[in-house]
Write a protein that binds this DNA or RNA. Structure first.
Lengths: 222, 222
DNA sequence: AAATATTTTTAGGTTAACCTAATATTATTA
DNA sequence: TAATAATATTAGGTTAACCTAAAAATATTT
């Protein structure tokens, strides 16, 4: 019985209510999730069906063992994402909190572990943390202005992946029509002196690009 | 006109079809998203309403300028999450691809930029990358066995946040009833010799915990 | 205890996102 | 070109997740 994201949210809200106030009531869960009480009743009945809560009308909502487990796990995921945003990426707390919700539903054990490890790594290696902070700062200020390299910066034999095609609409259209589309892998076959033209292979086809055109193609080396 | 996550997915699929095959057809979009053609028609009509695609029945689906932009942005977010999972966290490609989808809808500019910066940072600093890889390995093998510290490991004046309460159900119940609930902040007021008992303050209340109990409370220093 | 207020529940409605099955359209091939 | 196959569209149904508004149950005052 896999829960929907929404039901997982309800479970978590109930978990927090239980923790904060000792018990969870329809009204408070409703307020916490910003929905109407009737929606909570509906959700709780579904959770009851699935065996995650105990509930008799009029009574408090209480989590069963499996319910506790799911809620706890979801909460931990939430926490780790928050920690990552806050401590590693340096997103402001409030903003981090907003971003966090939603992501915790898309994590599995491996992701969770890896993210935890990363948080710890940064925590234990303040030099790395410092270094990254400086790096990110200059990145933000546009000093590492273009995050992706362009095709003209590579040489014979390099295998690249197209990220984006820039330039005016007409040129872009033309390049895309040639198969230079985001995600496409290309191999540089030959670069003429002074970088013009550049011959590449993609999907088995050969293509010759002017340097000006090559400059419009953002790529990533693979 | 904010799009739903689902419609953003349709937009992205259309984008990729256009890029890969030069044009997007209902059938192919359906296959790509693993839905029925009728669902695609419905979604496309909604996208048309919202001004993101041009579509006359029987014809191909084509993105408008705003449609292109949204699709491109979503794709870039997807890519950066993928890059992060793959290059930084070391999740295997296939698995990373699965995890990626879903997350790209929960990102904003700041998150995107920070994550990009992190990927670059790791790329440019292979020593850091190496170091983390080793760290994560030992972490995975349980050598950094417990990711969270426990309450008994801290001293007077430390401010902590409760992460989890472990122990048998009975003890857990009791500790939680005392207010030691996940997320709760506590301050250590006094630690008796040999660490037993530990006095803490939470929500303005004083609490005295046996060392055995303190060991059950996973915390994080804040 | 009666009156009032609060909370919970039910009943019935809406929307997005799917579906199946039938029909219409467009392509392909005999 | 007629028959067949492939695609696309429509019509109508389902489910989750919301809602409003009214009714029922509990609590709280006077």
């Amino acid at each position: 019985m896999a829960l929907t994201e929404t039901l997982e949210d309800y479970l978590q809200a109930i978990f927090h209510e239980e923790n904060e106030k000792g018990m969870a009531r329809v009204k408070d869960v409703a307020k916490k999730l910003a929905v109407r009480a009737s929606s909570v009743v509906e959700a709780v009945n579904r959770l009851k069906e699935a065996g995650y809560v105990l509930y008799e009308k009029g009574d408090f909502i209480r989590l069963t063992e499996p319910g506790q487990e799911v809620a706890q796990r979801t909460f931990e995921r939430n926490l780790v994402v928050y920690r990552f945003l806050d401590q590693v990426l340096g997103v402001e707390p409030e903003h981090a909190r907003k971003l966090t919700c939603g992501i915790e539903h898309h994590m599995d054990r491996q992701f969770f572990d890896a993210l935890s490890a990363l948080c710890f790594f940064f925590e234990r290696n303040s030099d790395v943390q410092e270094k990254f902070r400086r790096f990110a700062d200059s990145y933000e200020k546009g000093m590492i202005c273009d995050m992706y390299a362009t095709l003209d910066q590579f040489g014979k034999g390099d295998t690249l992946k197209v990220i984006k095609v820039s330039g005016d609409a007409f040129l872009r259209q033309r390049l895309i029509a040639m198969g230079l589309t985001p995600g496409q892998e290309i191999v540089i076959e030959r670069v003429a002196p002074l970088g013009d033209p550049v011959d590449v292979v993609l999907r088995g086809y050969h293509l010759s690009l002017r340097k000006e055109e090559a400059k419009c193609i953002k790529v990533e080396k693979i």
